[in-house]
Design a binder for these strands. Structure first.
Lengths: 148, 148
DNA sequence: TCAAATGTCATGCTTTAGTATGATTTTGAA
DNA sequence: TTCAAAATCATACTAAAGCATGACATTTGA
C-alpha cells in the first residue's frame, strides 16, 4: 500500500516535470493545447486505472482448516415412551440401525436374521410410531427420546 | 459492463467539451496552462480510478480446503460445504424436504415438479454426499452442517 | 455472446421398502 | 406348566426408491 502511494507520487512528479518541459515546446505548435490536454488526459487516465487496480485488486484468500467435532450430546433413552408404544427390545434395535442409515438387508445381516424378519419389525415399528416411512420413523423416534 | 462503458464515454465527452470551452477563458490568465493541465490531470485521474474500480471490482474469493463437521446444536447453514460438494440450491431444497421425511412424490408435489425430477435431484445428491440411501444422506448432511 | 451449469422431464429398468397374512418357535411371567 | 407376547420366517404382493441415460430449456458467468 505505502509503496504504491510512493510510486504513484513519484510517477506523478515525473509527469508534471516532463509536461512542464514539453509545455514550452508544444506551445508553439498549432492546436498544441488540445494535444497537451489530450496527452495529460490519456496519461492520467491510465495512471488512475492503474491506481484503481492496485488498491482494489487484493484478492483475499481465506482458507478454513478448522474442524469442529460433533458434540456427542448426552442421551438418555426414554423407556417410558418405549413401553407406552409397546415397542419391544428387538424393534428398538432395528429402529436404531434404521436411524444409522442401514438398509433392511444390512440390518438383517447385522442381527443375523432374515430380511423378512426385519421387514416385519419395521412394519410394526411404523404402526406403533404412527408413520409410513423409515425416515419419518427416525424423526418421530428422536422426538420421543427413543433415539439420540 | 456495457453501462459503465457508455457512462465512461459520456463523461469523457462532456469533459472534453467542457475543457474546450474553458480553454479559451483560461488561456488569457497567467500560468493558465499549468492550471489547465492540472485540472485535466485531476479529473482524469479520478475518472481513471473510478474506471479501474468499476472494471476490476471482483468479489473476494474464498477458498475452502477442508470439509467442516459441525456441532448440530445451533444450526447455521454451512454454505462452504454446500459449494465444496457442488450442491445446488434446488438440490438443497430437496434434501431438506427429504430430511423431513417426505417421500419423493410428496416432495415433487410440494415443489410443483415431477416425480422424475425429484428422483434426479436425489440421485445427484446421493452421489455428491457419497451415500446410497436417503437416510444416510440426511445423516451426512447434518454432519456437514447442511441441515439442522 | 457463448459455453457451462442448472433445472426439468421422460423411459426403462433393478432394487429396496412396505403391506398383508399366516405359521412356527422362544421366552418370560403368572 | 401354561399362555401370551415376542421373535422368527415365508410367500406374495404393491409401492417407492434408486440408477442410467438422454433430451431440452433456462440461467449464468466469463
Amino acid at each position: 500500500m505505502k509503496k504504491n502511494i510512493l510510486i504513484y507520487g513519484a510517477v506523478l512528479g515525473l509527469l508534471v516535470a516532463g509536461l512542464k518541459l514539453a509545455e514550452y515546446k508544444l506551445i508553439v505548435i498549432d492546436h498544441s493545447i488540445e494535444i497537451y490536454g489530450g496527452l495529460i488526459a490519456l496519461l492520467f487516465t491510465v495512471l488512475g486505472i492503474w491506481a484503481g487496480l492496485k488498491f482494489v485488486k487484493k484478492k483475499e484468500v481465506v482458507v478454513v482448516k478448522e474442524v469442529i467435532v460433533q458434540d456427542p450430546a448426552e442421551f438418555t433413552l426414554n423407556e417410558n415412551n418405549l413401553k407406552l408404544l409397546n415397542i419391544s427390545k428387538r424393534e428398538h434395535e432395528v429402529l436404531m440401525l434404521m436411524a444409522q442409515g442401514l438398509s433392511n438387508q444390512e440390518t438383517a445381516d447385522k442381527l443375523f436374521v432374515s430380511l423378512n424378519t426385519i421387514k416385519t419389525h419395521s412394519s410394526k415399528l411404523f404402526e406403533k410410531l404412527n408413520v409410513q416411512r423409515r425416515t419419518q420413523a427416525v424423526q418421530e423416534a428422536k422426538k420421543l427420546g427413543l433415539l439420540p
